[in-house]
Design a protein around this nucleic acid. Structure first.
Lengths: 147, 147
DNA sequence: CAGCTAATGCAACATTGTAGCATTAGCTGC
DNA sequence: GCAGCTAATGCTACAATGTTGCATTAGCTG
């Protein structure tokens, strides 16, 4: 194979001071390639598709590590499973959109819940999480087709 | 014991067409008595405190039934566990507040996320879920005391 | 109060995530 | 390039939360 370092993902990982392993590179690239957040199974399936056999536990640890390093962030889905996406979250308090039709979770970077609300006196919010449920733009377009 | 029907909770249950059982009455009363949402364990602990021995499964089924009947609603906590609260949710799209200090989840009836945002074109939201994380009013007051 | 069946309680299982530990494989220094 | 250190992996077993199937109990109805 080509030197693993050829990938930008590998550079990001190295910059965190962690060891640059096949698993980390592959997982990070998978997250970066996806426009929507992926749960553990989604990632495992893609690793398998890439011919990378995998341990469940390693994947959990790899995903947690990426989040810890700020290379990915995580949200909890309605099915109480975690979903991951490349890129840290601390700076952007954006909203998410759960599509009830296709089940995907998308980021709405333009919506910032922390800037819009005034809480009752006494409450000191540090973080706001806003999730919309409904039909996403893609599914909305195909509305007549499959509904 | 006094006739079970003496309780308002019993009336609500009967009105749903379900059988009025000790468990349902007790669980619904527990939810109604709590200002904050309770997870499965919280409810189980209170049932035990009331001297009502309990099966885990029955409790899950009872809680699900109450939600199904619109007598309670449920939200998913950051620990990926469900939390329940008396009262339906369909009509009031209110926000929630997770206190990082005491771990409680409170309802902010005054904040309606569905009325405040304009999504990008194409998105058709049907429900919005807004959760704030931070310090609640109670914990904020005792700030110096225990932090 | 007899009978019907919803609700319960039990045991076993499913899913999602963690912990411990032996082995593998990145990295560093030579 | 190789040796050695140890982070990362992969395995097994376990924990937490929730579900399914089924026999038994107990509300409700006539």
């Amino acid at each position: 194979m080509p030197t693993p370092d050829s990938s930008p993902a590998a550079h990001l990982i190295a910059a965190c001071g962690g060891r640059v392993t096949r698993t980390r590179i592959a997982v990070l690239e998978i997250l970066q390639d996806s426009p929507r957040s992926l749960n553990h199974d989604d990632v495992a399936a893609r690793l398998a598709a890439d011919g990378m056999p995998h341990d469940r536990v390693t994947l959990y640890r790899t995903l947690d590590w990426l989040v810890e390093q700020g290379l990915a962030h995580r949200i909890i889905g309605p099915d109480r499973a975690r979903r991951f996406k490349a890129g840290g979250e601390p700076r952007s308090q954006h909203a998410h959109f759960h599509c009830d039709r296709c089940g995907h979770v998308l980021c709405l970077e333009s919506i910032r819940p922390d800037e819009q609300f005034t809480l009752p006196a006494g409450y000191q919010p540090e973080r706001a999480e806003l999730v919309f449920h409904g039909t996403c733009a893609d599914c909305g377009r195909q509305r007549g087709a499959k509904a």
